[in-house]
Computed example of a mutant assay.
Amino acid sequence: MTKTSIGQSKVVAITGAARGIGYQTAKELTRRGHRVAIGDIDEQQLKASADELGIATFSVLDVTVADSIDRFLDLVESELGPLDVLINNAGIMPTGHVHEEPDAVTRRQIEINLLGVIYGTKLGLKRMLPRRSGHIINTASLAGELPVPGLATYCGTKFAVIGFTEAARQEYRKSGIQLSTVRPTFTNTELVAGTAGAKGIRNAEPEEIAAAMANLIEKPKPFVRVTRVASGLAAAMKFIPSRLAETLSSSLGADTVFLDDVDAGARKNYLDRILTN
């Protein structure tokens, strides 16, 4: 694909960008000629990723602290110019039974997956509204449309991200600011380590989500789902009687894929990192 022309090049800030979807999105946007800044709580991996991507503007970032996001955006605007696009991407996904989930893990998911998005959106709006221009993209999930056993708190945060973003989008629809969600199916990053996925439905690759993000910047719309098959399933489930939907979901293995079928050993490194940083 031809790189974006200078006149169309945008200043883009991405949270949670040291790995996974955030990293691949930064890579894709840089390839398309946008001016990209990345933030992440993992300082060592952040520096390594910035070096790999050739990105000079980056900062350690804790999305659970509004002042940390604000400082990151200050850096972005001081080095790259006025913020055009903010991608609130940071998120974590522990698995397990609700009654066994420690309260600290519940709080951690809400703070990162939901409060981080709300804080980022508010701070992005404050910078964009005076210019009546900008785009805020919040990473949600198809798990924010379809409930998944073993991911109750995660689903709750992603349902909330979709609801929050849609309400804000309508609130600011005449302001010149675009608000969108990207809703991936389960994606082959560390988030799904030790899980096998639903039967007959492939996981997405992070490059696919990155391309969807980049396309959304170039042609804004309220939301995009990825992949096409998972998107169709998510849309169809809303029109199927609940008992039939649950039977179909069970037949795909959704009842156990994030519970009994999880390889705890394969997830240990991921969980240790997300719950201690």
Rank of each mutant, 00 (worst) to 15 (best):
K174I: 00
L146A: 04
Y119I: 10
L151I: 09
T165G: 06
R132V: 00
G176V: 02
H99A: 07
L114S: 03
G144P: 04
E101N: 14
V98H: 05
R132S: 13
F164P: 02
R108Q: 12
P184V: 05
A168I: 05
A143T: 10
I112L: 13
L125T: 09
I162E: 14
I112H: 03
I110F: 08
I136C: 11
R132F: 01
Q109T: 05
G144W: 07
R132E: 09
R169C: 00
N138A: 03
I162H: 08
I162V: 14
V161K: 11
P130Y: 13
L114G: 04
A167N: 05
R108N: 02
T181E: 08
I136Q: 06
S175M: 12
R127M: 05
Q170W: 09
T121W: 02
C155W: 00
G96Q: 10
I118W: 07
A152Y: 03
S133H: 15
V148F: 11
G96A: 10
I137V: 10
T181Q: 05
R108H: 07
L179D: 07
L125Y: 09
A152R: 02
F159M: 09
P149K: 05
L114V: 02
T153E: 14
V105W: 08
C155E: 03
T157Y: 03
L151R: 14
R127Q: 06
K158M: 11
P130M: 11
G144M: 13
E145D: 12
Y119P: 07
P147Q: 05
A168W: 03
P94L: 03
L129F: 06
I177V: 15
V98M: 12
L142W: 02
I118R: 12
T153S: 02
G156V: 07
G176Y: 08
T165P: 01
R131L: 15
Y119W: 15
I162M: 10
Q170T: 00
T181Y: 10
R183S: 14
I112P: 00
R173C: 04
A104T: 14
L123M: 13
G144A: 08
F164T: 03
A143R: 08
A160E: 09
A167L: 03
G134W: 04
R183G: 00
V182F: 02
F164V: 04
G96E: 13
H99C: 06
Q178I: 01
A140G: 09
S133W: 01
A140H: 04
G163V: 05
T139V: 15
P147G: 03
Q109S: 09
L129S: 12
G124E: 12
L125A: 13
G134Q: 07
S175H: 11
R131G: 04
Q178S: 06
V117D: 03
T121N: 05
V148G: 00
